[in-house]
Amino acid sequence: MNKVGVKVTLVSGRTLMQGKTMEKGKTSQEYFEAVSYCEIDATTLKALGIEAGDPIQIETQLGTVVVRSKLNKNLTPGIAFIPCGPYFNALIGSYTGQTGMPIYKNIEATIFPAPEEKIPTIDEITGDK
């Protein structure tokens, strides 16, 4: 397999839309849209050979998820951002180092173009009972 990806430091955090749509309701389309993307910078976009908005697959040591790409001109190359929520959480582990707090920020990740992939729904991510 000749998958070519870009290594990034992946960060999660709050956004205004994530906050707004969370209050609206987590089953809303707006919430889905507010948490299922990944911001990357122009260089990364170019290296991946994709257009902003194309699906990308993100892999970490602990998980994989497909999200929509989004251009953020203010990002430094090498940093990528996903709003906090179920998509980001699919990429991290539960080890808390005896603190109770998993590491939600600064995760090593690789981004691949995923033109054929569909962005899963939140239900598909968190799964059923």
């Binding site: 309701g25 959480n89 699919a90 539960s94 998993p102 939140i122 968190t126 799964g127 059923d128 009972k129």
Partner: peptide
Amino acid sequence: PVAHFPIDAVEHIKKIPVINIDPKINM
């Protein structure tokens, strides 16, 4: 917690009875 915990913590939530008290429908 299902929206905000790492996926393997969520995996355990799936295995146990959960009682959820919330005004809204959430994850």
